[in-house]
Amino acid sequence: MIEIRHLSKWYGPTQVLDDCSTHVAKGEVVVVCGPSGSGKSTLIKCVNGLEGFQQGELVVDGVSLGDAKTDLTRLRARVGMVFQHFELFPHMSVLKNLMLAQIKVLGRNPDEAATRGLALLERVGLKAHAEKFPAQLSGGQQQRVAIARALAMDPVCLLFDEPTSALDPEMIGEVLDVMVELAAEGMTMMCVTHEMGFARKVAKRVVFMDHGHIVEEAPAMQFFEAPQSERAQAFLSKILHH
């Protein structure tokens, strides 16, 4: 579903991605982790073309992102993304947030979009909040709406960019529960996250990044039980012992 081959990216003279290669097969969940500044968010933003790259190849669902002729808007409509800071549109109701792209991008009629939107809100347990505005919800609720908004487009895969990093601890669980459920249903997911419990539970593989490199890539259990690189060992010892 997602093929990343020898990807490199520079901001001016600074290299932020260095020869990164990995893949996510259909129905797989891959977790990307690493210290801040390691390039993991940049990598995931390359997957739907929010960030460009200078070298390498990136193919999503058969569409090559390096190709200048690629219609990025069409690709993005099929790849959902959930952000660290939710990024709901604050000036419209929760339901309108779910309807807007269905109508403007997919061309669904408003009734159809509302029906689909309400069904997804019910699924994330927020149907009662459909007419509220984002700022009237808690962080955890907003992130669940954001996931529902991504699902409303019937995406072929979902990208998560640190979906729980901006949440209070007691709200992390409700968001992870939704993500675990999605994984169980076979959604293809690429998740940048530090939630190692989540990674253990649902990830097929873990990709560990540092300084723009993919330092280690391993099946989840192996990564947690016996990390190969020193860098990954040090990282895990810091985040697991808290």
């Binding site: 099929r78 790849v79 993304m81 990024e87 549109f89």
Partner: peptide, 21 residues
């Protein structure tokens, strides 16, 4: 926030649609 533009584009909006809506 820059994320608003990112979120709009990530949903498949064109640049004019992202500005307009």
């Amino acid at each position: 926030p820059r994320g608003q533009m990112h979120a709009a584009l990530a949903m498949g909006f064109t640049l004019p649609q992202a500005y307009r809506h």
